[in-house]
Each structure stands twice: as C-alpha cells, then as structure tokens.
C-alpha cells in the first residue's frame, strides 16, 4: 500500500503498550505526528515519556500495538523483520547516544558497515565512505579505531555511518548526551549543517533544550502524548516548518 504526500514521516493513531504480568503499561497513547521532508524536528520529554520508543517505531525497530507508521510512501509497521532490515539500510541513518561503533573496526570500516549490505563495488564503497568521513571532517582519522578517538570524534564517525547510504531520514537518540559541552556544540553544528546542505529530515531526541533549539520544531512528549509544539525561529537558509501534530 502506498500514499502520496509531502511528509517524510507520518504516524497515525499510534498506541504502544506492554504487559507486565496482568498490568498494561501504556507507553504511547493515540499519537499522531507528521514531519515534512527536510525538517529538523526535536523530540523532548521527561524520562519515561516514550521518546525512545517513538524513535524506535519510526526506525522500524519496534512495532506499534495499534496504528500505522509511514515513512515516505511506505507503511513500515506492516513490514516483516527482514523487509524492515533491508528498508533501513537504504532509508534510515541512526545516531546513538553512546556512538556504538564496533571496537574491532577502524573508523573507515565502521562507516563502511552499512554499505556491505548493498550491491556496491569496493571502489564505490570507498568513494562513499571517504565522502561521508570528509563531511564530518575525519578524513585524516580513517584508520583509527574507536578507542583511539575522542568522544566527539567517535560521534562524528557515528554520524558519517548514518549518512553513508544517503538516507532520507536521520534519527538521532541523544547524540550529545555523552559529550562535553564543546563537543556537543560541534556535533549539533555539524548536524545542523548537514541538514541544511543535504536536506535530510532529522528527528532528534534530546533532554537538552540547547540541542532542541537547533531544530525547526520542538515536540514535547509526556506520558505517551504529544503535549505541545513549539516552533523555533527558523534560520535564514532553513525551510519553514510544515509539520503539524494532533493529539
């Protein structure tokens, strides 16, 4: 099933609940969300509000108990695990709080990982990896292992890994949560720059208001509901936010 629209991400009537024994725990309650192509969206909320769960649903890492998740023209909540894995390779870039780089691989090899799943020649892979590392300013650290890089540099590698397959949507889960203030600023600058220059849709989960302030729009989650939407003053080169939220 496909639909034609301008939204990169659409969530319709999303419920997510778990059972602990006979008790039902509602994580997300009838949530609707639309994020247009190219938007930089920040998701904020207190601990336990369901931010990470929401991000996992958008990435196809988890399935909603009820409702549909659409990314571009595909209903990913109806896909099998294998279909989702294939889909993620090309359509999603994920940036983790704790980088999650493979310690046995160099920066180059970490960035190359998602490309191993695509039908590309070694030369094509090399070109894409070098471009991604150049974008994050780490072309001179290609042969370093994660243990030889600072936290900020590791996160840059994580961002390069998220970008290397040229996905339409980048999901970042507290990408500055493990960094000092200076490194965090650099990472946020980098993400904002990438969003501006590459027109990627970015959904950022954060606790940090300064990080959220870089976004086009901020959504607050509380007890599984989106409680408000705070438009942010757009920077001159950014598009105006077109998304809307409904509770």
């Amino acid at each position: 099933m496909t639909i034609a629209n301008d939204f990169c991400v659409q969530l319709r009537g999303i419920h997510k609940y778990f059972f602990r024994g006979s008790e039902r725990l509602d994580i997300l309650n009838g949530l609707n969300l639309e994020a247009p192509e190219g938007e930089f969206l920040a998701l904020m909320g207190p601990s336990g509000s369901g931010k990470t769960t929401l991000l996992n649903l958008i990435a196809g890492l988890d399935k909603p108990s009820e409702g549909e998740v659409w990314v571009r023209d595909q209903c990913i909540s109806a896909m099998s695990e294998s279909q989702l894995a294939r889909w993620r390779t090309r359509n999603i870039g994920f940036v983790f709080q704790f980088y999650h780089l493979l310690p046995v691989l160099t920066a180059y090899e970490n960035v190359e990982l998602p490309l191993l799943l695509l039908p590309l020649s070694a030369a094509q892979r090399r070109q894409q990896v070098e471009t991604a590392l150049e974008l994050v300013g780490l072309q001179d650290r290609m042969d370093h292992r994660p243990g030889q890089l600072s936290g900020g540099q590791q996160q840059r590698v994580g961002i390069a890994r998220a970008l290397v397959t040229d996905p339409a949507l980048i999901l970042a889960d507290e990408p500055t949560g493990d960094l000092d203030a200076r490194s965090a600023e650099e990472i946020l600058d980098l993400m904002a720059e990438l969003q501006r220059s590459l027109q990627k849709t970015i959904i950022l989960v954060t606790h940090d208001p300064r990080a959220a302030a870089r976004a086009d729009r901020i959504l607050h989650l509380d007890k599984g509901r989106l409680v408000d939407s705070l438009p942010v003053e757009p920077t001159p080169v950014r598009r105006s936010p077109r998304g809307s939220t409904r509770e």
Binding site: A59, S82, A85, R90, I92, F94, F96, P114, L117
Partner: peptide, 10 residues
C-alpha cells in the same frame, strides 16, 4: 546496532 544498520537476522 548491526540490526539498526540493516543487517538481517540471517
């Protein structure tokens, strides 16, 4: 992480 990157269970 590998699954997030697109690695299938196989």
């Amino acid at each position: 992480v590998l699954k997030v990157l697109g690695f299938r269970p196989a």
